[in-house]
Amino acid sequence: MDSESDGKPKRLTRAEAKARTRRLLLDAAARTFARKGYAGASVEEIAEAAGYSIGALYSNFGGKEELFIELMVGGAKARVERGGQVFAAVEAGTEDPVTALGRFLMETSDKDDDLALLQAELWLYAMRNPGMRDRLAAAQRESREALEGVMEAVLARVGASGAVPAPAVATVASAMFQGLVRQRRLDPSSVPDDLLRQAMRWLFIGIANAPETPGPSEEDPS
């Protein structure tokens, strides 16, 4: 009888066991970095929090910096995947674009209590280590690009398609979201659920009602 039919726990394959070990180490690293910062966290503490030896940590990651980089890239990939799901719902017509975007931002903000702390620590680390700046920028760029399709749909819905570039709107929305999440962590009552949703609506209403940007003058004023 197989493990599923006889009620016994399923035996993990070697690949599955390795993936589980990496996930637990990354989860422990995220909590530790958020609580103590990059400088204050040690590989010993991360390994212990995950329930593994230091040797297991080094066999899966090159060290503390590699763990940090993986968190940075992995977080961006997760947001890309979730952004794709939102875009699919909008394209299918099952959800209003502005509502879908606001819900996505709210769910992302509340998914992990350490999100704002970890993002702040990643930013500080990149600013203090120029070699890491491009890697963080690339990871964040990938996350923003996943939202561009949703931005295009929202702009079209509010009658502002082509008024402003979707990548620029994605950048503004991402920055606004990060600021609101930090404020929500500091003072939850100041950023209730409705504000996270409404902030996106205000952004797009403002774009839709903004006067057209005048083009360059045909005459050289000089």
Rank of each mutant, 00 (worst) to 15 (best):
1 M>D: 05
6 D>Q: 06
7 G>Q: 09
15 A>H: 11
15 A>Y: 07
16 E>G: 05
18 K>I: 07
22 R>A: 09
24 L>C: 10
24 L>N: 07
25 L>A: 01
26 L>G: 01
28 A>E: 03
28 A>Q: 02
30 A>G: 04
31 R>G: 05
32 T>N: 09
36 K>S: 10
40 G>Q: 11
40 G>S: 06
40 G>P: 03
42 S>C: 01
42 S>R: 09
42 S>Y: 01
43 V>S: 07
43 V>E: 05
44 E>M: 01
49 A>L: 12
51 G>N: 08
51 G>L: 10
52 Y>C: 01
56 A>D: 08
57 L>N: 03
58 Y>L: 13
59 S>K: 14
59 S>Q: 06
60 N>Y: 05
62 G>W: 14
67 L>A: 05
68 F>Y: 05
70 E>V: 04
72 M>S: 03
73 V>R: 04
79 R>Y: 04
79 R>N: 05
80 V>W: 04
84 G>L: 06
89 A>M: 12
90 V>E: 00
92 A>N: 08
96 D>P: 00
97 P>D: 04
98 V>Y: 05
98 V>L: 15
99 T>F: 12
100 A>D: 03
101 L>Y: 14
102 G>P: 15
106 M>Y: 05
106 M>F: 08
107 E>T: 09
107 E>A: 13
109 S>F: 12
110 D>L: 08
114 D>V: 13
116 A>F: 04
118 L>A: 03
119 Q>D: 07
121 E>D: 11
122 L>S: 04
123 W>H: 11
125 Y>G: 02
125 Y>A: 07
125 Y>H: 15
126 A>E: 02
126 A>H: 02
127 M>P: 00
130 P>N: 09
134 D>K: 12
137 A>N: 08
143 S>T: 13
143 S>L: 12
143 S>F: 10
145 E>R: 13
149 G>E: 07
149 G>H: 09
150 V>N: 10
150 V>F: 06
153 A>N: 01
154 V>L: 14
154 V>G: 09
158 V>G: 03
158 V>M: 11
160 A>K: 01
162 G>L: 05
165 P>I: 12
165 P>G: 13
166 A>N: 13
167 P>I: 07
169 V>N: 00
172 V>W: 00
173 A>H: 02
174 S>P: 00
175 A>W: 11
176 M>D: 08
181 V>H: 12
182 R>H: 11
183 Q>N: 08
188 P>C: 01
193 D>P: 06
194 D>Q: 15
196 L>A: 07
197 R>K: 08
197 R>D: 12
200 M>W: 15
201 R>Y: 08
205 I>Q: 11
206 G>C: 05
206 G>H: 13
207 I>N: 02
210 A>E: 11
211 P>L: 15
212 E>T: 14
213 T>G: 12
216 P>C: 04
216 P>T: 06
219 E>I: 11
222 S>N: 10
